[in-house]
Design a protein around this nucleic acid. Structure first.
Lengths: 234, 234
DNA sequence: CAGCAGGGCATCGTATACGATTTCAGATAC
DNA sequence: GTATCTGAAATCGTATACGATGCCCTGCTG
């Protein structure tokens, strides 16, 4: 018989730990809990209407993911992603995503390309009434489509994890350097062209990498005008 | 005053969760708990002489690391790294490590190079009385030295994490394809030469990548002679 | 007035307890 | 002989409880 007949609603749906995990993560990426925010077990448990045990577990998971830092006998707080950590993570993401894009290129369908281009078109449209937030969202969607067919799922996983890590502060880049947005969409078109014409994978990867690191460089140039920083200058 | 004056021994040293974590991980990477092994909370707690709560936490951490898989209401077991997952992870590791090596190349000291070469020499020596286990250990040490000065610590972290994931079954490669070992040490010398002569980072990265994927290809060719697989053929 | 000792409060770490769920063995019906 | 049902054992998920630890504030002392 149906093993979950009467539980269709939610009772068995998921464990409390998982609910806590999602709930907290939601708040973190939604900036409701900003970096440095103190995550008190008892309080969270109270709000979620459960005991502290599942909350502890959830926080441990978030810690493993890097969203939360933990200190014994002191407690957890939302990770302070200091500037350098942000850069490094961004650079790593760029490398991984470029590789994923290259590994994906040969498997992209015409439909994929079309969708990617349409996303990029929407990005171009929004350039007038520029909104960093939605622009970044579209940007992520664009790259996500390009790497979606990556032949190596592990690489995709790593890309996803890194996106998650940066999630709660990534809208910053484009808001700081609006001018970068225009170059960005142009480079997107170039990458699409390379993929369509079946360029060597090395070339595609290189282009994607340059694209990424250019965005990062723009951010850095704005934040630290005097500092030379070449995280993936290869 | 000294905050741990009288506890120098161990009492405050580390939490039970951490002890459990280390203990279990030790067994997993030491093959004492082989893939598929069932990790029962109560049993582990008994052996570690603690309650199940810390053990649960430890297992969650290991799950986040990918060493353990968890099924709700069923329990945890050591990850079954099936063949394809192994390949993918290996390929991802190759990509990351190659990048790390390139990002590290310019910062390697003469001493680093010397040590790396000495490790490689030891590998050559052991070719006669070949022992896959120690050969693999040396291999790891070699690559670890080369990427140790990586300018991007996040990339290094990712490399380390991936090594950990593969830890409990990585000795396989060289035991399956002993012939590969000889090529391998030759390629090591080539990479060292590239670094010494200050070759372009792109070239170094490419060489490191090819080196890695060649090892993987050798493994695959042995395991799946008929299958074409180009995880990072860029 | 400055500095240190002491104590109380907040919070964490772990143990124990119990209900919920899964799994497996044995029995029964066809 | 096979398939299905039933019940008990094993194990998990979560709540509650209590000791341990760190932090802050008060009050004493020089």
């Amino acid at each position: 018989m149906a093993r979950e007949t009467m539980t269709a609603a939610s009772p068995t749906a998921q464990s409390k730990s998982q609910r806590a995990y999602r709930w907290i993560k939601e708040r973190i990426v939604g900036h409701e809990f900003s970096p440095g925010y103190r995550l008190v077990l008892g309080t969270l448990a109270g709000e979620l209407d459960m005991s502290v045990v599942p909350v502890r577990e959830a926080i441990r998971q978030l810690e493993a993911e890097g969203l939360v830092t933990f200190e014994r006998n002191v407690g957890a707080r939302v990770s302070m992603v200091d500037d350098s950590a942000y850069r490094y993570s961004m650079a790593a993401l760029g490398i991984l995503e470029a590789t994923a894009t290259a590994l994906s290129a040969r498997h992209l369908t015409a439909g994929d390309i079309r969708r990617a281009r349409s996303v990029n078109d929407r990005m171009i449209e929004t350039l007038d009434h520029f909104d960093p937030r939605s622009f970044t969202a579209l940007n992520q969607e664009f790259h996500s489509i390009l790497s979606s067919r990556c032949a190596n799922p592990r690489v995709l996983e790593l890309v996803g994890a890194e996106w998650g890590r940066l999630g709660h502060l990534r809208d910053s880049t484009f808001s700081f350097v609006p001018g970068r947005a225009q170059e960005s969409v142009r480079e997107h078109e170039q990458i699409l062209a390379l993929i369509e014409q079946g360029a060597p994978l090395g070339e595609i990867e290189h282009a994607a990498r340059r694209h990424r690191s250019a965005t990062l460089d723009a951010y850095l140039a704005h934040e630290h005008p005097d500092e030379a920083f070449d995280p993936a200058g290869i």
